[in-house]
Amino acid sequence: MSDNGHILRIAVIGTEAETGPLIASAERLAGIDCAGVPGDCELDGFDAVAYCGSHDDDVRAICDVARSGKHLLVDLAALKTTVEAEAVIAACGEADVLTMIAQPQRFLPSIRAVWQSLDAGELGEPGLLRIHRWTAEPSGNAGQRLLGEIDLANYLLGGMPTNVYAVARQIGDSPRFLQVHLGFEGGSMALVDVTTELPAGDDYYSLSLICADGSAYADDHHNVQLMYSGGPAAAARTQPISLHWTEPLREFVVAIGKSRLPAIGGDDAISALKVSAAIRRSIDSGSAMRRQGEDYGPA
């Protein structure tokens, strides 16, 4: 609820799988009312619009929503380039509405547990972040699944990488397998592989953070239950409802109510998108990229 007691009405756009966690998170917060709506829905009656997950909407449509006076909550995964991010931020500035580019992946229960341990100093200086992210999306684009992982690398290792190298394997026009190798100031490193090529069924996610004084392992492999129905046992993951949109939503609502900039902002999104651009250049050239100021050039 904003400071004047007004209930903030938020239209939520995305697939059911993408919007579900945001709507579930909203149910646990006072002062907001979220409703999932189709992308082409009439938005009168809503104060704000949330774009969840990656989608094919033209970013101009998002900017038009801002110009119509709606506050915007945009999942980082909805943006593909720094140009798009800057266009959204500029449109919101011109319309004097608040924009917040969120990184909800940072608030997944497993990632929060890792972050809290790191932030408390229990693990010491981070040395290596290893992520495997495998999804089952027959027409998926691994590049779109990568952006949240790049943001996590920047978040956990403390800034943009100094070195970038990547390889990709295509099916048709879309990269279906991506492997990204990042080096950071002080010698820490990240290695991330993403594929959309799993057979239909469960996804797989694994994140290991190796630090000077300890390590954290958030791995789906550790969290499977066994089911017997003849033949080899099947492994089934226990999946509690994930409320990872709660923190971004709370910050979004408070920032609107207090008419201030959100603490989770566009700078981190721009950083992740810059790294993403360097990844594309590395793949295209077959070369490593090195950070030069705020951008990247050949190593």
Partner: peptide, 9 residues
């Protein structure tokens, strides 16, 4: 190959 190496521990 592409590698990153460090003495971290």
């Amino acid at each position: 190959v592409f590698a990153r190496t460090t003495a971290h521990f």
